[in-house]
């Protein structure tokens, strides 16, 4: 079947085939049994799908949408209400935290690479590294949420609170590497990390 015939069949079904092409289409279909059968099947589909049942929205849907909208707008407003200095401090501390965590990620990769020839050690290193990283991430989320709450209550102390997050994170990082280096003989974090 040619592309032109397919296009004509399609346009005829959608009622947009030009009048002068309609007779050409039926002439072609008379000459091509396969195409005629195909067109009949497409016509069946078209009739089945015409005027299909329409699903109406449940009664409560609009109210639910507006409730969710109000909640979203309130959250946005709360964030926008933060003083500029607080928002800057928040962004700065998040950037510093990411910077602080980068060497940890590199160190984790380094340790995994060093332990790759010892399956038992590799398993232990992986388990320990994943557990520590999960702990760090959860601690970070907790710190940020608590600090954000405090910033809303006491905007004047927000900058100080945010600036302490990287310090706390670095302290935790030091503890983590201390544990890692003492606990896993033969697999140490590189010295340049700390």
């Amino acid at each position: 079947m040619t592309e032109l015939l397919q296009r004509m069949m399609q346009e005829q079904l959608d009622g947009v085939l030009a009048d002068e092409q309609v007779s050409e289409l039926y002439q072609r279909l008379n000459e091509d049994e396969d195409a005629a059968a195909q067109f009949a099947r497409l016509g069946q589909v078209d009739r089945l799908m015409s005027n299909p049942p329409f699903a109406r929205a449940p009664q409560r849907l609009a109210a639910t949408i507006m409730a969710r909208l109000a909640q979203t707008v309130q959250q946005q407003t709360e964030t926008e209400d933060m003083p500029d200095e607080v928002r800057q401090a928040l962004h700065m501390s998040v950037s510093l935290v990411i910077l602080a965590m980068t060497p940890m990620m590199v160190a984790a990769s380094w340790m995994v690479l060093n332990a790759r020839y010892n399956p038992k050690l590799l398993t232990r290193v992986l388990e320990r590294t994943i557990a520590l990283m999960v702990m760090m991430i959860q601690a970070l989320i907790f710190l940020l949420e608590e600090t954000e709450q405090m910033a809303r209550r006491h905007p004047d102390k927000a900058a100080l609170a945010f600036s302490l997050i990287p310090v706390v994170l670095m302290g935790m990082l030091e503890y983590v590497y201390g544990t890692q280096n003492n606990g896993e003989a033969g697999v140490k974090a590189p010295e340049w990390v700390m």
């Binding site: 699903a55 109406r56 929205a57 449940p58 849907l61 639910t64 949408i65």
Partner: peptide, 26 residues
């Protein structure tokens, strides 16, 4: 809401998911 809900229902084939998708779209 009816127009959006019907589209979501026909696309997803499930009422609860269609409601959620309608909310998200709005």
């Amino acid at each position: 809401q009816d127009a959006v809900y019907n589209l979501c229902y026909r696309m997803l084939g499930e009422r609860t998911e269609a409601e959620d998708a309608t909310q998200e779209a709005f």
